[in-house]
Write a protein that binds this DNA or RNA. Structure first.
Length: 609
RNA sequence: GCCUUUGUAGCUCAAUGGAUAGAGCGCCUGACUUCGGAUCAGUAGGUUGCGGGUUCGACUCCUGCCAAAGGCACCA
């Protein structure tokens, strides 16, 4: 926010350093870590260390020399516009902002940009974020929820940071798992269809669990049981063969049940606030990927071992000329000529770059698929795919349960929809207790926002590379470092403004008095303003590092500052109008910033709770 | 066997190579007849897995161990 002033001072320091015959190195600025007053800081360790390295320090220890330079620079600078004072502490040079200027600048900047406060300038680069890749014929569990919440938040952050952003979903609508459901449905439940989008989707998932039990070998099974199982398995294989051959009966059954799953998926994405721009389906890249295999064989990148009963493989390390094993060898076409996940990913990459003209492609996929993704990108490089190094796998830790990994096959999953419903029930209970005057018709909507806010925050406040052991009581906690805590800060800010408008018979919205920060600000005000000012920089960092956690941590700090401020600093109760007006505006700026930051996480704050 | 990731307070997690390693939960102690107590203020709690190295400076980078999780060709 003070970039120009910082630049000017940097130039001055540079001039001073060079004039004193000290080799100059670019300065690294940071904010002063002390409370109470804000400003920027720079240290002279690097310059002193560099000087020592060149043997020009006259034997003075680095830290002592750095402190010396810092002191000299302070003397040289004297007083500087926009900064109230400068101090030299050890090797550091601290420049303190002029309080009233800075405060007004920050708050006005929020009002000038509103819900765009914190957004970056357009970067002229198009990024595709691929997430929400559940299989159809299964149900959406909390592992999928982490994936989707993370992908959606990342998309919002990247977009807000200034990149042209495309959201892509890639459901797995074909494969052995899908066929298993078709087989069992056809055999045991033909013609049945439960009422309700979610009930129907979950019912299909139960069929999968049931079918898996029938198809998996068991310890100590009798010969009859074994025969039965093998018969079922051959029926399933036959079903896959018929699907592959385009048998109309199987295809119809497939598209009907597939649609049931997609309907449920679309509704869950709606609940999560996700609007997918581009839908890819595994079934649609199946055929195009076979052409790529042919090309890879023709160019001797892939080895066709089908004549000897094998598959089509790529010896990735060998083709890349690597001595140590890194990507190993992988199959890109089964011996029966059908494609694999990896095969389809090759066609998908091509489609993304060629049809949608993206400059960068981010795959939000569980860490367990890291090797697979690296193999995919390596084969793209071998193929000569021009944007192979523009593909990035955002690996995140997976979600498991206290009793172990989730398994759709064993029916050991926690469904997102069940957690969501439970969240709403719990919030409604709290509302009855804490805000019994809330009108009935408002409660449901508020409960949805708070419940989802709690779940979302619990997922996004841990870094990407951390696994999560899902505990519903932790995920739906409403106190402390949680979504509702932050939403509550927003609500409190709102209630101050509402009261002001009501008392002065003004219409709610932007009716705020003009203001100046021409009094001595207290620590709570200073810290709150400082937090607001940090937001734009953190948006860029989060986008650069693909880490929504940065924003999650930030918005908690901001809310925490606001709660402290709220408790300690009177706003409407202030006697002096000028102070009241300034604080009112600060409250409005904080409210806006909380909303903007929460929006990047996909969390909405209600006006009351 | 090879590869990847992780190891920080009792638990769950933070910390662009930089000033005093911070939060939440839990424990304990307090808070205005006030703008909403889903809150605030405070106490206690640390050899950052262990050993070397690089650096003026290491939780952070390199290296060797130890421990945990995950992955390693016809699943996705």
């Amino acid at each position: 926010m003070f970039e120009i002033e910082q630049k000017t001072i940097e130039e001055k320091i540079k001039k001073f350093v060079i004039r004193n015959d000290i080799p100059y190195i670019d300065l690294k600025w940071s904010t002063i870590p002390f409370n109470g007053e804000w400003g920027i800081s720079v240290s002279f360790f690097q310059i002193a260390a560099n000087e020592a390295k060149l043997g020009r320090n006259k034997g003075i220890p680095v830290s002592q020399r750095a402190a010396e330079i810092s002191k000299q620079v302070k003397e040289y600078l004297g007083s500087v516009p926009s900064f109230s004072h400068i101090e030299s502490v050890n090797a550091y040079l601290n420049l303190y902002y002029s309080t009233s200027d800075y405060a007004a600048r920050v708050v006005n900047s929020v009002f000038d940009t509103g819900d765009k406060f914190g957004a970056g300038v357009p970067k002229n680069e198009r990024v595709m974020v691929e997430y929400a890749q559940p299989n159809t014929h299964h149900s959406f569990h909390i592992g999928h929820a982490r994936n989707t919440l993370l992908g959606e938040s990342l998309a919002r952050i990247v977009q807000f940071a200034g990149f042209d952003t495309i959201r892509a979903s890639y459901p797995g609508d074909i494969g052995l798992g899908v066929i298993t459901v078709l087989w069992a449905y056809n055999k045991f439940y033909r013609g049945k269809e439960p009422e309700g989008i979610h009930e129907r989707g979950q019912w299909l998932a139960n069929i999968y669990t049931e079918a898996s039990r029938l198809l998996e070998p068991r310890d100590g099974e009798t010969p009859q049981e074994k025969n039965q199982r093998e018969l079922y398995d051959s029926e399933r294989r036959e079903m896959y063969r018929r699907w592959d051959a385009g048998d109309p009966e199987v295809r119809n059954l497939w598209s009907m049940t597939r649609e049931w799953s997609l309907e449920e998926l679309r509704d869950i994405l709606r609940i999560l606030g996700t609007k997918i721009d581009v839908w890819f389906f595994e079934s649609e890249v199946d055929e195009p990927s076979k052409a790529i295999v042919d090309e890879l064989i023709a160019r001797d990148i892939a080895t066709d071992e089908r004549k000897s009963g094998g598959a089509v493989i790529v010896k990735i390390d060998e083709k890349l000329g690597l001595k140590k094993e890194k990507y190993r060898t992988n199959v890109i076409l089964r011996s029966d000529g059908t494609t694999l996940y990896l095969t389809k990913d090759l066609a998908l990459a091509k489609e993304k770059f060629e049809k949608y003209h993206v400059d960068r492609s981010i795959y939000v996929i569980d860490v367990r698929q890291s090797l697979h993704m690296q193999q995919t990108f390596a084969i793209l490089r071998l193929w000569g795919f021009p944007q192979a190094d523009k593909c990035y796998h955002l690996a995140y830790g997976y979600v498991s349960l206290p009793e172990g990994a989730m398994s759709a096959r064993r029916g050991r999953v926690v469904l997102f929809k069940e957690v969501y419903n439970e969240a709403i029930q719990r919030v409604l209970k709290v509302i009855v207790e804490k805000n019994p005057n809330m009108p009935q018709d408002e409660r449901e909507g508020v409960a949805q926002k708070i419940g989802l806010g709690a779940l979302t925050y619990s997922m996004l406040s841990v870094d990407n590379n951390k696994d999560i052991i899902f505990d519903i009581d932790e995920a739906l906690n409403f106190e402390g470092r949680t979504g509702p805590y932050i939403q509550n800060a927003y609500v409190r800010a709102n209630s101050i403004l509402k009261k002001y408008w009501a008392e002065n018979q003004l219409s709610a919205g932007k009716n705020l008095p003009s203001f100046e920060f021409d009094y001595i600000l207290g620590n709570h005000e200073i810290e709150l303003i400082e937090q607001i000012a940090r937001f734009p920089g953190l948006v860029q960092q989060a986008a650069r590092e693909y880490r929504p956690m940065i924003i999650a941590a930030y918005v908690y700090d901001l809310a925490n500052c606001f709660h402290s401020f709220y408790h300690a600093v009177p706003v409407l109760q202030t006697d002096q109008n000028s102070i009241r007006n300034a604080r009112l505006n600060l409250v409005a700026a904080a409210k806006q910033t909380i909303a903007n930051a929460l929006a990047l996480l996909g969390i909405t704050a209600p006006e009351v709770m």
